[in-house]
Design a protein around this nucleic acid. Sequence first.
DNA 1: TAAATTCCGACCGCTTTTCTCGGGTATGAC
DNA 2: GTCATACCCGAGAAAAGCGGTCGGAATTTA
Lengths: 161, 161
Amino acid sequence: MKLSTKGRYAVMAMVDLASTSNGNPVALADIAERQEISLSYLEQLFAKLRRGGLVRSVRGPGGGYLLAHASDQTRISDIILAVDEPIRATRCAPGSPVGCRVNKARCLTHDLWEELGNQIHLYLSSVTLANVVSRRVLGTAGVIDGPEAETAEAIPMVAAQ
Amino acid sequence: MKLSTKGRYAVMAMVDLASTSNGNPVALADIAERQEISLSYLEQLFAKLRRGGLVRSVRGPGGGYLLAHASDQTRISDIILAVDEPIRATRCAPGSPVGCRVNKARCLTHDLWEELGNQIHLYLSSVTLANVVSRRVLGTAGVIDGPEAETAEAIPMVAAQ
DNA sequence: TAAATTCCGACCGCTTTTCTCGGGTATGAC
DNA sequence: GTCATACCCGAGAAAAGCGGTCGGAATTTA
């Protein structure tokens, strides 16, 4: 799970979309103006969000973007994962932790980063767009009954090397 | 709290130091070789760690670095804070959240990032060097009786702008 | 057809991050 | 005192990522 401004922009835009759309498509140009993000950059982000199945698009005049799921079914972690498509966290051999164990202390930290990634993902997947729109993001935001609840694998975080 | 490779290198080096020193100074050159980090880069990191009061240095032959405190009194969060000296999280006006509230959805996300920063800090301050060395970093790593337990303010995270 | 809007790929300047280099300076061993 | 060992320091090169631009193509409504 990588944390960058790109992910934050995506979340900002999705919050905007969730709060201004009432079932109607919202044009990117409108979001761009309100959130002060360049249109072309937003287009890149929404291309990824669309590929990630988080939004649907409607082309032509009157078109725009729609949430693919209800705002209380869209997790913040999904948004960030969609735009930031993260990479490996350690520079151990991808897959087999071979060069990892040779040096004793070298990857003692491995478990640490992995667990930290889990913690971050745990929190961000406990918050939905609806939570943010209604300003309910503090503390344990309450476990949600998500569309599918199996997103708890190993989550890499932050760029490596 | 910013998460970068710099912070990870610092933690790796500190883990190495904690696990190889038995009260004796450890030379940076040794750590550099074991952890495959360039000596000059390590020197920069340890300069910050020293300024942060996490390590002590011994100059001259036979010199090196020592932990300033016991390894179970050194929190991972302190290490990262020392080397990464973080900055503001959002691009709201520093101090007054004025330009923040003008746009409705603009900074709805503000609370979210702040709380995420708190979560990260909470986890990393619950893990000590000793925990990592003994490979005990999973789950709730057990609250420690730190030297001082007042490090729970607003923690900015990740580069802004 | 004309306008609105998403879609797409390439490219670019800037900042930050990561890392290197070339020297200093203290200290212990001999 | 000299010398090797190690910390100390600042300037700057190299690389990467970010935020953005541009020009166009496809699709749909009117």
